[in-house]
């Protein structure tokens, strides 16, 4: 059975009197352990589809099933807890919390799930930061880190609960090419260990590196 199943997915946004159909009947299955790139022009519905997979947004019609769970039918709080447990998200603008240190940012998803003792959380967060090469920056605030370093913290945060899926919404969109390559190496490594990785990208290089490429145009798969 597929890890991710999108069936008859529609999403319409309403802004005042205007309606915009971002997704128009998506059917997609993604197997466990895949490395998937979602590509397409701006406004084609790439980020919207990712938001459906993470449960950040809900479909207007259709279903989203992840590891057997119908997440489109879950209540908000249950969904948040599910997301914390099963999905790690990396954003283009890193989205770290500016008042928390790198270590605290990484600990946060574990805090929400009340996973282990505070000491255990700290140890695991430190491990993850060492994994992304930031073992010496754990007490730094985001404002004291470079863009690449911030994105590594964001990846460490996404990994900390050992999710089944890592989702990246243009995760290298704000990085230089050298850092972009390093980031992809990290994704590749995670995928090699069995984590399903899905990312949206505009970069042809990054898209070519994926094992599966999904292309979207005007809200439809092509």
């Amino acid at each position: 059975m597929s890890l991710i199943q999108l069936q008859g997915l529609h999403k319409t946004y309403k802004t005042g009197k205007l309606e915009f159909e971002a997704l128009r009947g998506i059917d997609l299955d993604i197997e466990e352990g895949q490395l998937v790139a979602i590509v397409g022009p701006s406004g084609s519905g790439k980020s919207t589809m990712l938001n459906m997979i993470t449960g950040i947004d809900r479909p207007t019609d259709g279903s989203v099933t992840i590891a057997g769970d119908r997440i489109d039918q879950m209540k908000e709080d249950k969904l948040a807890a599910w997301r914390g447990d099963n999905v790690g998200i990396v954003f283009q603008f890193f989205q770290l919390f500016p008042t928390l240190t790198a270590l605290e940012n990484v600990m946060l998803p574990m805090d929400f799930l009340r996973r282990g003792t505070v000491g255990e959380r700290k140890d695991r967060a430190r491990e993850r930061l060492e994994l992304v090469g930031l073992g010496d920056k754990i007490d730094n605030l985001p404002s004291e880190l470079s863009g690449g370093q911030q994105q590594r913290v964001a990846i460490a945060r996404a990994l900390v609960n050992e999710p089944k899926v890592i989702i990246g919404d243009e995760p290298t969109g704000n990085l230089d090419s050298k850092t972009e390559a390093a980031m992809f190496e990290l994704f590749d490594e995670l995928n090699a260990r069995g984590t399903t990785v899905i990312y949206v990208t505009h970069s042809p290089t990054l898209a070519d590196k994926a094992r599966v490429t999904v292309e979207l145009v005007d809200g439809q798969l092509v």
Partner: peptide
């Protein structure tokens, strides 16, 4: 973002 990384209400 908080909700994205698992924060409940």
């Amino acid at each position: 973002m908080l909700r994205c990384i698992g924060a409940q209400s």
